[in-house]
């Protein structure tokens, strides 16, 4: 499924958000390990603190939401990141 399809079909479901984040994280994947909702961003991927902040910016634009820096320390896993975006997207 192409990116455009993801954007249209499922970007607003939690799963759709997760799929999209996983796609953006592909380039930071360490070895063979697949990205799951339990993947710990700061430990299981090859990202430094600056790259994490830049990823947040990219996601803000991808989903048209604000992800304040204050929230970043509380986001440990990819699943939590998807939850955070879903919550700001839906006002939940």
């Amino acid at each position: 499924m192409g990116t455009a399809a993801i954007q249209q079909s499922s970007a607003l479901t939690k799963d759709g958000i997760f799929v999209e984040i996983a796609r953006l994280l592909e380039r930071f994947r360490a070895g063979e390990a697949t990205i799951t909702s339990e993947t710990v961003i700061a430990e299981d991927l090859t990202m430094d603190s600056l790259q994490v902040m830049d990823l947040m910016m990219e996601l803000e634009d991808r989903f048209d939401v604000s992800i304040p820096l204050n929230l970043v320390p509380e986001i440990a896993t990819v699943g939590q990141l998807a939850d955070t975006i879903y919550a700001s997207k839906t006002g939940a």
Binding site: S66, L69, N70
Partner: peptide, 13 residues
Amino acid sequence: ACKLGSATVIRFR
């Protein structure tokens, strides 16, 4: 300063 303060922090390009 952003960490010390209590405002919501947004970063722009």
